[in-house]
Design a protein around this nucleic acid. Sequence first.
DNA 1: AGTTGACCTGGAGTGCGCTCCAGGTCGTAC
DNA 2: GTACGACCTGGAGCGCACTCCAGGTCAACT
Lengths: 129, 129
Amino acid sequence: MSYSIAEAARRSGLSIDTLRYYERIKLLEPPARDTAGRRAYSEEDLAWLSFLTKLRTTGMPIRRMREYATLRRRGLASAGRRKAILVEQRGAVAERIAELQSSLEILDYKIDNYERIEQGAPLPREASA
Amino acid sequence: MSYSIAEAARRSGLSIDTLRYYERIKLLEPPARDTAGRRAYSEEDLAWLSFLTKLRTTGMPIRRMREYATLRRRGLASAGRRKAILVEQRGAVAERIAELQSSLEILDYKIDNYERIEQGAPLPREASA
DNA sequence: AGTTGACCTGGAGTGCGCTCCAGGTCGTAC
DNA sequence: GTACGACCTGGAGCGCACTCCAGGTCAACT
């Protein structure tokens, strides 16, 4: 079974333009083509795309995904370096989560202040609100 | 007490260029000037800058921060709308945390696979690794 | 009086990650 | 045989958040 670019876009959640863009910048290996020269994505292509979109969600820059993609093409021998990239990214994600959690507290605090203002309480000392 | 732009940069963690940029785009009210026309940031300016950098950490786009900054200039009457912005941002941050947490799990799973490969285990079925 | 260094302005340039466009080719439906 | 719609290519354009630069002013130090 293979998929047109429109289908691949639908399934991956990426736009058609983005799929072609990812191919240009070598995030994707060029998919097969049908007799008319149109792209025909395989299940495997879609699995890779799905993984890529997950990496993107982690905030990994395209440059780094490209590195990973290149290593992947080199096969098993590159497994160690691919793992290292994922481990590094896991660290970055954990840090970002911590950062967001602490900014959540700040937001809560500020929102609280606004609620007190609504209830007619005095303004907080700091004027940065 | 007031601070030179270099001091303000050091204290806020922003670059001098970014401070001038934020002023240009109206995220900051123009700070006072000394007799030579150089910017002199007040404590209050720094407090606002510190809050801005926190909003930035939450991933709030500058456009939205500008909106907040504009409302702030309107004073107490705008408190409700400012609160709404913060509440919305809190929601966005919570969502982003959830997203990152689920991608952490995916990373863990992938890293696990690589560890099994290192131990000579068979490759996972899916080829997207 | 001259040099230094921090600052000033207006404007151009950068890297990222897409997104859009013009002009063209195919296969299918009428 | 022609109209349509999906696809193709190469390349330009865009929004974001800075970052850098040239050319100039000013106060302080030697």
